[in-house]
């Protein structure tokens, strides 16, 4: 068993939670996703190769867990309208911290991007992952990462310049 995966996991929680929020835009759901993804990661700890990037491995698990969650919701016929859940800014209980986000035109601009652009933007520009790492996490070709990322960033510049 790889030593210290538990510690790494706990240390990664804030970033996992942040990525989960980018994916689902709902605070309670994000916390559920993180918890579920951690459980799945621990159950499959043997598949993590020490020496490779733990954060990238975890982001991939988290995202796959999210996709499974969406699929389950759909088959159970109780799909929430996630586009209505824009609780990233201003969720109850996060006031002092998230109100500072309100300051940021940028945050709002990012929030308005389509999910496929938002997730790649955050992985590359906020999490500092390479295009290849992002492609592995998102399970798309590197060319797709680049076209989505370029579109997201062009849009971001347009929106913040107009603000």
């Amino acid at each position: 068993m790889p030593a210290g995966i538990g510690q790494e996991l706990v240390a990664l929680l804030p970033r996992l939670r942040r990525f989960a929020l980018v994916l689902c835009r709902s605070q309670p759901l994000a916390d559920d996703l993180v918890q579920g993804a951690c459980e799945r990661a621990l159950a499959n700890a043997g598949s993590w190769t020490p020496g490779t990037k733990f954060d990238a491995w975890m982001f991939r698990i988290l995202r796959n867990y999210w996709i499974d969650h969406l699929r389950r919701m759909r088959t159970e016929g109780m799909m929430e309208d996630i586009s209505m859940q824009t609780q990233l800014v201003g969720d109850a209980g996060e006031g002092p911290i998230l109100s500072r986000l309100v300051l940021s035109e940028v945050q709002r601009a990012i929030d308005s991007l389509p999910q496929e652009q938002r997730e790649v933007l955050v992985l590359v520009c906020a999490e500092d992952l390479s295009y290849r790492e992002a492609a592995e996490i998102l399970d798309v070709p590197i060319g797709t990462v680049m076209s989505r990322l370029a579109r997201a960033r062009r849009r971001l510049m347009e929106m913040t310049a107009a603000a």
Binding site: L9, V10, L13, P14, R15, R17, R18, D31, V34, Q35, C38, E94, I97, L98, R100, L101, S104, V106, Q107, I110, L121, V122, V124, C125, A126, A152, R153, R154, L156, M157, T160
Partner: peptide, 25 residues
């Protein structure tokens, strides 16, 4: 655009992990 994104997601603005989640993990 990279700088802006990084600023918007800076560590300083990262919400604390709720105690329940921390405890569960």
């Amino acid at each position: 655009s990279r700088r802006l994104t990084r600023s918007a997601f800076s560590m300083a603005l990262m919400p604390d992990v709720p105690p329940e989640l921390q405890a569960a993990v």
